[in-house]
């Protein structure tokens, strides 16, 4: 990262004046200053894609909501991170995610350690008003150490990105489109038969839900270790 000529800008977040480097995103600046913006597809150390739409914020002068994870700050910006409108949209977005697959927390390995579950709490979601879509999806337990359960997948693509950007294997990708999108390994083959997978397990650790977990874990036993990611990223950046 170029630390040479970075200007400092000042902006307002929720009415408070903050300073920031001009190449920082709204999300980074907000979090540095203790403002909470919910996220799901974002993961520090991986590229940002702006897909989950939970980090949308209001910016004065823009008639559209902006994605905090990919929008860089500008001098004089006035950002609102929470409003009744934003809160309602976020609640509905999380609701959409719950209705999309079969999220039955009570029997999930990640119960209690799940990013999606935590989001529901954060946005105050207690009931789902839209019908569940109940898709028939499969579980791939062909890998000797890990399991992929499509029932819990939220298509955040953290696994795809960590595998491509950090491990360099690009075993994961997405197939299909729309609501029929699925994460796949290689040519949508059984994970255990994958030629490119190095079995490093990074995908499992970054997965926000119980979609990727270690074999042998029972209900509520799967906790994820993610300390490696900021560490690996900072090491690599230090090299440059």
């Amino acid at each position: 990262m170029n630390r040479g000529q970075v200007r400092i800008v000042t902006l307002k977040i929720d009415g408070k004046d903050v300073g920031a480097r001009e190449n920082e995103t709204i999300l980074e600046v907000a979090r540095e200053n203790g403002f909470d913006i919910p996220t799901l597809c974002h993961m520090e150390g991986l590229s940002d894609i702006g897909a989950c739409r939970l980090c949308l914020v209001e910016v004065k002068g823009s008639n559209k909501l902006l994605t905090a994870c990919v929008t860089t700050v500008q001098e004089g910006m006035e950002v609102t991170t929470h409003s009744p409108r934003l809160d309602s949209y976020r609640r509905m977005t999380v609701e959409m995610l719950f209705s999309e697959r079969n999220h039955v927390c009570a029997v999930c390995v990640s119960n209690g350690h799940c990013d999606l579950q935590n989001l529901a709490v954060d946005v105050g979601l207690t009931h789902i008003t839209v019908p569940y879509l109940y898709p028939k999806v499969s579980i791939d337990a062909s890998h000797e150490r890990f399991v992929l359960d499509h029932n819990r997948c939220v298509l955040c693509t953290r696994c795809v990105r960590v595998c491509d950007e950090i491990e360099g294997a690009h075993t994961w990708d997405l197939m299909g489109r729309g609501v029929k999108t699925r994460v796949i390994t290689d040519l949508a083959e059984a994970w255990g038969d994958s030629e490119s997978c190095t079995s490093c397990g990074k995908c499992v650790q970054v997965c926000p839900t119980g979609a990727l977990f270690e074999k042998g874990k029972s209900v509520a036993e799967m906790t994820k270790r993610r300390t490696f990611l900021p560490y690996l990223t900072s090491m690599r950046n230090g090299d440059e």
């Binding site: 491509d164 294997a169 690009h170 075993t171 994961w172 990708d173 997405l174 197939m175 299909g176 489109r177 796949i184 390994t185 290689d186 040519l187 949508a188 030629e195 490119s196």
Partner: peptide, 11 residues
């Protein structure tokens, strides 16, 4: 990557 090729083919 094979998954990329498959992903594009099915998109």
């Amino acid at each position: 990557p094979m998954s990329h090729v498959y992903g594009v083919s099915t998109f």
